[in-house]
Nucleic acid binder design. Sequence first.
DNA 1: AAAAAATAGTTTCAAATGCAACTATATTAC
DNA 2: GTAATATAGTTGCATTTGAAACTATTTTTT
Lengths: 153, 153
Amino acid sequence: MDKDPLIKWISIIYRYSLIYANEQLKDFNISAGELSFFIAITDMEGITQEKLSSYLRMNKGTTAKAVKSLETKGYVIKRIPESDKRSYNLYPTAKAVELRKRIRKLAFEWNDILLKGFDKKRRKEAALIIEKMAKNADMCINRSGEDDGKKDQ
Amino acid sequence: MDKDPLIKWISIIYRYSLIYANEQLKDFNISAGELSFFIAITDMEGITQEKLSSYLRMNKGTTAKAVKSLETKGYVIKRIPESDKRSYNLYPTAKAVELRKRIRKLAFEWNDILLKGFDKKRRKEAALIIEKMAKNADMCINRSGEDDGKKDQ
DNA sequence: AAAAAATAGTTTCAAATGCAACTATATTAC
DNA sequence: GTAATATAGTTGCATTTGAAACTATTTTTT
């Protein structure tokens, strides 16, 4: 049963997610790599790149590039706050806000594809498991995931 | 609960897996991207690139590059079979076979990190869920995953 | 307040990957 | 058996990403 390590399947899910997103986003001039940044910025107006990086667990260089691209494409505006001139607050443009719902929907349609054949209870279980695994990974790499101290359950 | 789409967590798990593997593999002159190819070739001696691509669900171009790199590094030998001169059979070198166990162990140590805090039953459940999700993704992108026809369970 | 350290972001380089066009060989159709 | 199609692999180009070195501010130390 554990002939293949989990990472084999995770890798497939991740790579196919990018393929799917690229296909679906073709008409919007947003790339798969930019998707999570787009969603986060439209959801959390005014967020800084630093916060964005830590929220998505992305390298800050990656964040810089994605944000710059979204800015060039007219989806994001950067504003330097008086309070800290090193940083930017990121705001979605009207054009981005207009697309927000459709783009978010797309991410959740992919959820439904991944969870096809799962009943409600198993969907919830899947979400919990995946999120916990990500937090375990985070804890290992950054020692920053909150270890909730819970024992095996 | 479903504020964030699953892909956010999948992305974190995948990217952190690469970071972990790159760190752990430093001494072996094998990169994270080559890892799954290394394991598959040492497990399935004589496999072709075509089969390898379909087994790992990797683009054949990606496979070609990874295999070439593993060959350059002295881990893989390509042999053209009489039966089909277009293809290669891939064999691990002695050097690869020698490392095989340690490299495989590494992949499963990462499993243990991801599944920290999960009891036996939940580990099995996690493996089933992840594999099913990957097959759902595969089905969507390639219409090739075997749809087992099972209803929601 | 000057020096040192921390923080926010950018840029360069390299790795991982997909796609599409390409070559070479095999198989199928006619 | 030749032409058309399919299959196996390679290569060039683009995207996604991380690491590390860098600049510019801010905060902390002394």
